[in-house]
Design a binder for these strands. Structure first.
Length: 436
RNA sequence: GGAGGGGUGGCUGAGUGGCCGAAAGCGCCGGUCUUGAAAACCGGAGUCGGGGCAACUCGACCGUGGGUUCGAAUCCCACCCCCUCCGCCA
């Protein structure tokens, strides 16, 4: 089979010159996020790279002018042996220099690609989730006159969720949905896509579910998070952990025109995650699966508009929950809890009665130019200048978790589940899921 | 999987060893002309990186990587992608 095309145009979040001149400032600004980047190694490598570059470019200049001289001599039928011998030597030195430069470059790339994004100034500072800030809350938790059941009990009793057989055919962290469960999942996907493509102005996309390494590097999954990804044994493809990867990479190595911005895409895809390191967490139920469905929102915006766009994108994700009448809150993630690539993130957390707590159901982020640099996505301004644009994305929503919320929040004393009105037309008019 | 054709600037497309970062056309930008526009004519314009306050200057880039050569878009090797035909297949 084929080996996917990879790109050389992968840039870390900053260009080399900026890195060299601002390494200390960057490290300081990153604070807790500076983490496991070997800053001193990086500093030395950047200096080496700069020196080598000057040397090689100087030699190349000699070679160029020298070779032109040879050409001139030959045309004038003059002896050129001596000049040719000199240029041969210069050529050899260039080869050596280029080899050293290539090695240094590789190491700089690898280190620089591990530097996380800088948090936006509006992001609360803190070491971990406890420092996240609640921004707003919507709706009310349902008043249940009985002890709420977890969705796995509800689903198994209704005959629409089957974890045992999922373990038989695949393993732990997989689920089988049957009958009205499968239909409900499908209804949710359609409801979400319809909402985003009509009232929110997103263009629907159906992308590949496996991508090459260049794509994964562009959005920041590689090189640092390879152990979280499923990959194929015989081909260099990786299964997408989110539609963010194919959607954002749609415009990799492109220059889009300013008039087209913002560009907004939505897609439903399965998402595949190895969940390495989450052993023992959410082992029961649909909350944490190796494969789950998600409707994703991705936006490309001008830098000056991107934070406005983040609010709009978050509102679009919230609209899904509001349409379903689900109680939720919006959290601004603190510096220590944000993802590697994000400059600012809002999490939407939905109320789960059985756990008496809010659980993440969507994550909406502005990556600023972080992904755009890595993936080389630029736009041409009216004045003719090219500039990196800003990328954003958010779940709108995680479908499996939405199904969980609907089961748990809609549950009745008799074990049936009342469906939100907005979903009923997608369920053939059905109002309630009961044991059949 | 087999056979053949092809990848050059925003697009079309020329270019088989030096004067080619690359003809020409289209499109684009500026100007002349015009009441305005079109046409015509004149001029401009690639991307990335280094140096410089700047005018500017140096280097890289013709699918990707390697090789030959004083010198490669051009010759050689490998790979990737696209197209046509055959085979297989939902």
């Amino acid at each position: 089979m084929t080996i996917p095309r990879t790109s050389r145009n992968i840039r870390p979040m900053h260009d080399m010159r900026f890195l060299r001149e601002n390494l200390d400032g960057l490290k300081a600004q990153l604070g807790l996020r500076a983490g496991d980047v070997p800053w001193e190694d990086l500093r030395k490598l950047l200096q080496d790279r700069s020196n080598l570059m000057t040397q090689v470019e100087d030699l190349r200049h000699q070679l160029k002018t020298g070779s032109e001289e040879v050409g001139r001599l030959k045309r004038e039928k003059q002896p050129a042996d001596e000049a040719m011998a000199r240029m041969k030597a210069v050529g050899d030195r260039i080869k050596e220099g280029e080899e050293s430069l290539r090695l240094v470059d590789e190491r700089v790339q690898d280190l620089a690609l591990r530097i996380p994004n800088l948090p936006h100034q509006s992001v609360p500072v803190g070491p971990e989730a406890a420092a996240n800030v609640e921004v707003r809350r919507w709706g009310m938790a349902p008043t249940l006159t009985f002890a709420p059941k977890p969705h796995w009990d509800l689903g198994e009793a209704l005959g629409i969720l089957d974890f045992e057989r999922a373990a038989k055919i695949a393993g732990a962290r997989f689920a089988v949905l049957t009958g009205l469960g499968a239909k409900l999942e499908r209804a949710l996907i359609n409801y979400m896509l319809d909402l985003h493509t009509t009232t929110h102005g997103y263009r629907e996309v159906l992308p590949p579910f496996m991508v090459n390494r260049a794509a994964m590097t562009g959005t920041g999954q590689l090189p640092k998070f390879e152990e979280d990804l499923f990959r194929l044994r015989d081909d260099d493809y990786l299964l997408i952990p989110t539609a963010e990867v194919p959607l954002t990479n749609l415009h990799r190595e492109e220059i889009v025109t300013e008039a087209h911005l913002p560009i907004k895409y939505t897609a439903h895809t399965p998402c595949f995650r190895r969940e390495a390191g989450s052993y023992g967490k959410d082992t029961r139920g649909l909350i944490r699966q190796h494969q789950f469905n998600k409707v994703e929102l991705v936006a490309f915006a001008k830098p000056e508009d991107s934070y406005e766009e983040l609010e709009r994108l978050t509102a679009a994700a919230e609209a899904v929950l509001q349409g379903l009448g689900l109680h939720y809150r919006v959290m601004a993630l603190c510096t220590g809890d944000m993802g590697f690539s994000a400059a600012k993130t809002y999490d939407l957390e939905v109320w789960l009665p059985s756990q008496k707590t809010f659980r993440e159901i969507s994550s909406c982020s502005n990556f600023e130019a972080f992904q755009a640099r890595r993936a080389s996505i630029r736009f041409r301004r009216a004045n003719g200048k090219n500039d990196f644009l800003h990328t954003l994305n958010g779940s709108g929503l995680a479908v499996g978790r939405t199904l969980v919320a609907i089961l748990e929040n809609g549950q009745q004393a008799d074990g049936s589940v009342l469906l939100p009105k907005a979903l009923r037309s997608y369920m053939g008019g059905l109002e309630r899921i009961s044991k059949s």
